[in-house]
Nucleic acid binder design. Structure first.
Lengths: 329, 329
DNA sequence: TTGTATGCGTTATCAG
DNA sequence: CTGATAACGCATACAA
């Protein structure tokens, strides 16, 4: 059953059917006839044929650092919510989570061209110079999340200020000796910017920065636990620890508890991310929350704008808020 | 740049180029010429045109109950891992997580036909009779995960035996008064089968089943907490609680701790799922683990087999194992 | 406005 | 084994 059959049944040319299908004006009498046949037959135009001639697939490519259950899931949820409504589908891919040479990103980008996706949402992890250079020559509409790359429109998290606010918050509670166990600077936003926020927060509070109270690591499992171990060994007393992200905080609290510190009585611990289970952790984790679902929605609308060639797309910064729970006093 | 251009440059017909492209035998001399031009130009055949004539898209549709971060993420990871290698892409969709009338599944199924996906992996939540009936008439290759639907090939979890093993395990530790806070029977495998395993486990251990010690609920957030509250109120003393899934266990432990019970000293709690953070929970949660990544891989291979018309596809049952941690003594 | 004819970029058919 | 040509199913330029 194709457009030809419909045309015959309705007694018009297939061009007319095509016009009805695409909402182009035709004589009402014809339109009515065609519509009736359409209804009777339940005919659906063949998407593949349409794609071939229109060169549009209603496909959006997504590059994630990981498919493991974490905040990226919310981002995807947000994107799916707005894109599904607009008839777009997501093709989700990942590049190796801890891959320092993240250049399979380039392969993915090529793959998306082959797939004729209309746009790309890229959530970068570590970004290599090669990737950047390649992106500069890349033709497809693309927005990034969490990092600004070249001139691409981006949805950004206010990592720096979030981090600074955490320090302010702790200082306000009376903490003066605040340790930082975070992420390597390689990860620009979640690593460098958060650390910078921490340092400037201290500075503004008139607290001297003690380099030995600042530890960074990667995203390996259990890194919080291990880092906390090293940290506590080498540093004397601290009244609060600022963890680079919530899962890091879990490990830290785990270790602290194990060696006899009480959280938060002896040491307060605060995270960033407001991970799904932080509310259920013991003690429930005070954290900073970004609205990840909204992030996905914003990114989705942004890439659609880009595809539709709405110029003047502005970067969007996602707000944060401190979620007070029981791991900080 | 299309196949015609290549043909001209190589001095052969486009049919010959097509043959070279598809590994069909041609005179070596021609093949060489074509290959050289292919290399020089970096030409890639247009996927959309291929799709139109071959009616194959290398697309797999996935229906998930939710995109929130949880075990489904691992399933997707497993699927992506094997499918990406074979050139297939995933289109991931969700139907409303708690939607009792889950019949947007039917819409999704229609959508997949429109998209010309080659096969479908369906992870059902609640399955309505309408959905079942519709699936009976459905044409596309489809496998399910976690539930057996009609005659479709399925990857199943051994929920019944996992559940029974938990009871055995608790009984062996000396528990005789074991409560069950689980999922509604509507959810067949995770609800009914797990509850059945619990009951038969007790029966075989010679322990009488006390209906008042068995509570079930849905997947609403915080249900563990709320259910535990009702449970403890109405039931007297219990030495162990079997939670229908890990996040339920979090809520239960939270509540118990809050009202002064110590876990595991006063009451042991065990979950199912081995959720990502159960190891970090306080106390770390004893649970039953299914290999979800493997589940995804198995499902992926299964749907590929189905697509390739390998008959004789057998259901696969995913093993479980008890992960002993600190919430049970 | 309508219908005819052509194009989209492949693969498949069939005669040579 | 090769090449011309017809599908595939639709959109659209062009002529009527």
């Amino acid at each position: 059953m194709n457009i030809n059959d419909i045309a015959k049944m309705a007694g018009v040319s297939k061009a007319t059917v095509s016009r009805v299908l695409n909402g182009i004006k035709v004589k009402p009498e014809y339109k009515e006839k065609v519509d009736r046949v359409l209804l009777e037959t339940g005919y659906k135009p063949n998407r593949l044929a349409r794609e071939l001639v229109s060169k549009k697939t209603k496909l959006i490519g997504v590059i994630l650092p990981s498919l493991k259950p974490n905040v990226y899931s919310y981002i995807v949820e947000g994107m799916a919510k707005v894109l599904q409504d607009k008839g777009y589908s997501l093709i989700i891919t990942t590049c190796d989570e801890f891959n320092v040479k993240e250049d399979d990103v380039i392969d993915l980008l090529d793959f998306f061209i082959d797939r004729h996706v209309e746009g790309i949402v890229y959530v970068p992890n570590i970004i290599t110079e090669e990737t950047k250079a390649y992106i500069d020559t890349y033709q497809l509409p693309m927005v990034t999340i969490g990092e600004k790359i070249n001139g691409l429109p981006a949805v950004l998290f206010d990592d720096y200020n979030a981090s600074k606010s955490i320090v302010d918050y702790l200082v306000k509670l009376g903490h003066e000796s605040i340790g930082y166990i975070g992420i390597k600077d390689e990860y620009h936003s979640v690593g460098y910017l958060r650390r910078l926020g921490y340092m400037n927060g201290l500075k503004e509070a008139g607290i001297e920065i003690d380099e030995s109270m600042m530890v960074t690591t990667g995203f390996e499992k259990n890194n919080g636990y291990v880092a906390a171990k090293d940290f506590i060994k080498s540093v004397g007393q601290v009244t609060a620890i600022f963890a680079g992200y919530d899962r890091m905080a879990y490990g830290i609290i785990n270790y602290l508890t194990k060696v006899g510190y009480k959280v938060p009585e002896d040491i307060s611990v605060i995270g960033i991310d407001d991970d799904d289970v932080s509310a259920y952790f013991t003690p429930s984790l005070t954290s900073v929350s970004f609205d990840y679902v909204k992030t996905g929605q914003v990114a989705a609308n942004m890439i659609i704008d880009f595809i539709k060639e709405n110029l003047d797309i502005k970067d969007q910064v996602i707000d944060f808020k401190i979620i007070e729970r029981n791991s900080v006093i």
